[in-house]
Design a protein around this nucleic acid. Structure first.
Length: 491
RNA sequence: CGGGGUGUAGCGUAGCCCGGUAUCGCGCCUGCUUUGGGAGCAGGAGGCCGUCAGUUCGAAUCUGGCCACCCCGACCA
């Protein structure tokens, strides 16, 4: 087996190779679009299940809206349309026909041109708000709390598996409210759902913040976000929640009568996370040997590998392994007993390490004779020989320990790489040398932000929600500033 | 859309300068031996050398067009 590229050697190649090697996804025949493979999709399904549960617990319902948006509808909210215009796939025809010059080929039938082009949704605000118009007349119709699981298309110039693909899977929540305050509460509540999910399930610490003007969602009044730090010190936007004000209600003329019978435009939010979270998961925990998965999202939590020389030994080992398998399942732990005779133990060890299975159990005649088994935890690679009797409880405990350890490890990594700097010179030096996040004073102007980006590639990731008020001066222009913002290179 | 690069077996490659129908590794198939960290040996299958045209007795190799993909920039969750 060829030696794998390490994170140190080439982080970007390490990531790509790993996504492929671990069986998460691969590039498809369609440029920029990926095939999500069964193991990768199983992780995504775990994410979906958990998020979906939280959405429902917070009062939302799922629905589904069309893939296509008529152009006239798409352009109704100007800022939103302008923001996405450059990356839209457009349907212009509805039929093919046999090429008269080559009977084996098909051509677009010029007679089947659509009167109005259809835009493949890059996001669904337009189609959803045009629908909400028919659903909302009175304050009694509000709030509307809807989520949809869908695919969207954004025609990206440069793509990377999970992090940026032309088509991606996501969920998008779209809510309608009677008051501004209620909509803001909603946007903030969903940001909390995202940050809790990231930290509790993905074991990925995040910074909760607001976007500055230049990074705000097209058509939003306020964009809240969670930003995570990857192992190379770069920032990754892991989820966003937008307060849309009355922009879409005005664009689609959605009004409601309040208790006094007065007509007012509806207040909106939208919020989403995507398959990009898969990339975040990989780049937060994995190592040079392969994937490292938090137990709460691992499709296989425990792999049991039999060691044997003869059929008799296999019978003996299998008996113990199958008993342990059922005990683990009773505790709600997902187990794979891998008795495939075509692969040798060493191969299996390497395979489950690559796939990030949190705990591996090896059972062989040598240990069995003493009533023991070998446990190896993926996060620390620690090996231990423990009593077979009651080992299911040891493993259950390990699941919690690993989940916690991964979070603590990632948290320490992040905290060690966030620093306050006060001069632009120091910032440039440190960013170049150490990477990571920087808490700096900024004058709040787009011009200064653009200058920093042009000179250092770093962007203002967010204004942290827990950022304390602090008088200071912009590190670039020396103009006054009231709080620090997070500056980093981003994915 | 600008700048650079690459197309040879399922994957990764050698050969190309200096023309003679293709090398090696992984994987795959069969058999035996193996099985506590990606097994060993033996045998075997698999390729119109991206594509179209030109030069030539003869093209993976030289020339030209086309296509595809990759990398770097602008855009972006």
């Amino acid at each position: 087996m060829a030696k794998n590229v390490t994170r140190e050697e080439d982080y970007s190649k390490w990531y790509n190779d790993l996504v492929f090697r671990a069986g998460l996804a691969e590039n498809s025949a369609v440029r920029g679009c990926m095939v999500i493979k069964p193991y990768g999709y199983a992780i995504w399904e775990k994410m979906q299940a958990q998020l979906d549960k939280r959405f429902k617990e917070t009062g939302h319902q799922n629905a589904y809206f069309p893939l296509f948006v008529p152009k006239s509808m798409f352009e109704a909210e100007e800022k939103n349309a302008e923001g996405f215009a450059k990356e839209c796939a457009v349907v212009t025809h509805y039929r093919l026909k046999t090429d008269p010059n080559d009977k084996t080929k098909l051509i677009v039938d010029p007679e089947a041109k659509l009167e109005e082009e259809l835009i493949v949704r890059p996001t669904s605000e337009a189609i959803i708000w045009s629908t909400y118009k028919g659903w909302i007349q009175s304050y009694r119709d509000l709030p509307i709390l809807i989520n949809q699981w869908a695919n969207v298309v954004r025609w990206e110039m440069r793509t990377r598996l999970f992090l940026r693909t032309s088509e991606f899977l996501w969920q998008e929540g779209h809510t309608a409210h009677a008051t501004k305050a209620e909509a803001i509460v909603e946007a903030e509540k969903m940001l909390d759902v995202y940050s809790e999910f990231a930290e509790e399930f993905m074991a990925m610490p995040v910074i909760r913040g607001k976007k500055g003007e230049s990074e705000r969602f097209a058509g939003a009044e306020e964009t809240y976000c969670i930003e995570a730090m990857m192992q190379d010190g770069r920032a990754l936007q892991a989820g966003t929640s937008h307060f849309l004000g009355q922009n879409f209600a005005k664009a689609f003329d959605v009004k409601f009568a309040d208790k006094e019978g007065k007509l007012e435009h509806v207040w909106a939010t939208s919020w989403g996370v995507s398959t990009r979270l898969m990339g975040a998961l990989v780049m937060t925990h994995s190592d040079d040997e392969g994937l490292v998965l938090p137990p709460k999202l691992a499709p296989i939590q425990v792999a049991i590998i039999p060691i044997y020389k003869s059929p008799e030994e296999l019978t003996l080992v299998s008996e113990a392994a199958l008993e342990l398998t059922s005990k683990l399942k009773e505790l709600g732990i997902s187990v794979k007993y891998d008795d495939d005779d075509n692969r040798r133990p060493g191969w299996k060890f390497a395979e489950y390490e690559t796939k990030g299975v949190p705990v591996r159990v090896a059972i062989g005649p040598r240990d069995l004779a003493e009533g023991k088994v070998e446990l190896v935890r993926r996060d620390t690679k620690e090996k231990s020989i423990v009593d077979l009797a009651g080992v299911e409880h040891t493993i259950a405990q390990l699941m919690e320990d690993i989940q916690n350890n991964l979070f603590e490890r990632a948290l320490k990594f992040k905290n060690d790489r966030i620093q306050k700097v006060d001069t632009y010179t120091e910032f440039k030096e440190k960013l170049e040398k150490e990477g990571g996040f920087y808490l700096v004073h900024w004058d709040g102007t787009i011009e200064t932000e653009a200058l920093i980006k042009a000179e250092t590639q770093a962007t203002i990731r967010c204004i942290p929600l827990d950022s304390p008020e602090e008088d200071g001066v912009c590190m670039v222009t020396g103009k006054p500033s009231k709080f620090r913002v997070v500056l980093a290179k981003a994915y």
